[in-house]
Amino acid sequence: MNPKLTRRRFIKGVIASGAAATSTTIWYTANGQSRPAGAVERMIRININGQMRNVDVAPQETLASTLRYKLGLTGTKLGCNRGECGACTVLVDDIPSYACSILTHSVKNMRVESVEGLEAANGDLHPVQQAFVDELSPQCGYCTPGQVMSAVGLLRSNPNPTREEARQAMAGNICRCGSYDSYLNGVMRAAQIG
């Protein structure tokens, strides 16, 4: 996790926005449409996958909600919506971060990358994506975008990790199918083909 984007800061942000957030009300689409905007500016610009996007964001809205339901970037998955599983992992200023646990307003001046931003313009897969295909790393695939983003974040900060370093770096992403070994094979292959 980005040390700047801790759970504590997330909670503080919700409180500061004047919204009464609960675990079941912080994430849904268009949830701000029926309540006053409060003190927080709603229409903001955020850098998503290298593009500045204008988006109407409620004060208590999470980045996962914005990506999925405002911007149509449904590659970011919600497995738990409470910072346990990592299916919603995106990169914020190159650091793997749980999009379910980040307020969108807090990333206004940061670079956000989701799985949709990795392919080259010509359609070539990112080396991590290609390695995951070659190693048949995914099983059900629901956690895969998050695994991809954690691996991309790792290889940016450490292009030649040991298997143990990769294991530690990927530990925030749960795979219920148990495909960890296959994902690690993919990470190590991606490091080789970099």
Partner: peptide, 12 residues
């Protein structure tokens, strides 16, 4: 379906 899983394009 594997490319769709690593790119996030496949839909649940």
């Amino acid at each position: 379906d594997v490319p769709g899983k690593v790119t996030g394009r496949i839909k649940y």
